[in-house]
Amino acid sequence: MSAIRWRARRGMLELDILLSGFLDRHEHALDDDQIEALERLLTYPDAELWDIIAGRREVEEGEKRLVELIGTN
């Protein structure tokens, strides 16, 4: 989880705020599948991750709920 905390630091302020807020709220409640999905999301380039959160880009079924939680700041 500590690596995820650091990798939530991004080039875009929008993502910094959404991801750090998300971790503050949900860090301890995530299950293994969600952690794996989060790790996958964090490998996207910033511009693409922002598109995903803004709903302009599709993600896999297993990532949808996570994306929704991140976007609900």
Binding site: R9, G11, L13, P45
Partner: peptide, 12 residues
């Protein structure tokens, strides 16, 4: 670099 290169602030 502190973060992966393509996540630098130049992206903004």
């Amino acid at each position: 670099t502190k973060v992966f290169p393509t996540r630098s602030h130049t992206v903004a």
